[in-house]
């Protein structure tokens, strides 16, 4: 505003003929698409790749995944440790050249356990989050898009499911299924998707009356196209935030379920259960909590950076910015 005012006050210079030039545009040429035609995914990837912060998140994740695959092997080659063999003569030892991350209350090497725990946590966290995403987006999309009775009934169903005591459901699963990774992912996703579906529903309700949606619809776009080409990409912000948050939620919920006996059975452990086990004595044996906790935070951070980048790359309104 202030700029405009300044401009207004200055006297305008006089125009001369030289200031004018005939527009010489080849109308055909203007129709030619110069930029290479990109598929939506390719486009997203290109934009993600140019985002350094997001890429550093991706690199960190890849490093962690590689370390969680090879870390335990390295320690095994160097010192011969594995994740389950106890050494009662060496419990609660500080980090040293022998035990890089120290030892836990049964004398097991924390380095091996941290990386093999990361393996479990990553699998569980990512799988649960993706399943939540899939179900939540479809369910929430349908609720928000159709509205009316469909919305009411589906909404009520999700509320009922959400209100049933989760602990009861878990105990029932515990009785019916054998403890395994699959069972734990099932237990995590049984109600995990609901939050996502509510977020999506809210977004779709907001977006579905926007002009571009109306325009697209009046041009004959079908439900699927409206939902997947217009509505969901525009809702990608909150969806990705929710998604990146559901990874750590799943990682910690897993430790709770493992403790109940539903998940992977001890001596196999996950980052979450290692943190939980270390909690009562962390003031005396900080390393038992520190290493898994830091790793969880780094995983989190990486997912968040990546998520942010992904959001920016996916969101059509942020294109070319």
């Amino acid at each position: 505003m202030s700029n405009e005012n300044k401009l207004n006050k200055q006297p305008l210079p006089a125009l001369t003929a030289a200031d004018f030039e005939s527009v010489n545009v080849n109308e055909r040429e203007s129709e030619v698409i110069k930029r290479e035609s990109l598929t939506a995914w390719r486009d997203t990837w290109e934009r993600l790749r140019s985002n350094k912060v997001a890429m550093s998140g991706l690199v960190a994740l890849v490093v962690i995944i590689i370390a969680s695959i090879f870390g335990p092997w390295i320690a095994y080659w160097v010192h011969g440790y594995d994740y389950q063999t106890n050494d009662l003569m060496a419990t609660n030892q500080k980090p040293s050249a022998l035990h890089w991350f120290g030892t836990d209350d049964l004398g097991r090497d924390m380095f091996v356990r941290t990386w093999s725990g990361a393996r479990i946590s990553l699998i569980v966290g990512v799988a649960a989050a993706l399943i939540d995403l899939l179900i939540g987006v479809i369910y929430g999309g349908i609720m928000g898009y159709f509205g009316g009775r469909v919305d009411t009934i589906m909404n009520k169903f999700s509320e009922i499911l959400y209100a049933i005591p989760y602990l009861l459901v878990t105990i029932l699963l515990l009785v019916v299924f054998k403890p395994s990774l699959g069972t734990i992912i099932l237990a995590l996703t049984i109600t995990g998707w609901i939050n996502m579906s509510w977020i999506v529903r809210g977004e779709i309700m907001k977006l579905k009356n926007r002009e571009y949606v109306l325009a697209s619809r009046s041009m004959g776009a079908g439900t699927g196209r409206l939902l997947f080409r217009h509505l969901l990409p525009n809702a990608s912000g909150p969806i990705i935030v929710t998604l990146t948050l559901s990874v750590p939620n799943a990682i910690f919920a897993e430790s709770f379920l493992s403790f109940l006996g539903l998940g992977v059975q001890a001596p196999i452990s996950s980052l979450g259960s290692m943190v939980e086990n270390a909690l009562t004595g962390w003031m005396f044996y900080p390393w038992r909590m520190l290493f898994p906790a830091i790793l969880i935070s780094v995983i989190m951070l990486a997912f968040n950076l990546l998520g942010d980048g992904l959001r920016d790359a996916l969101d059509p309104s942020l294109k070319n910015k």
Partner: peptide
């Protein structure tokens, strides 16, 4: 194998 169960179970 070790297996844990909720108290009542």
């Amino acid at each position: 194998q070790t297996k844990n169960e909720e108290w009542s179970v």
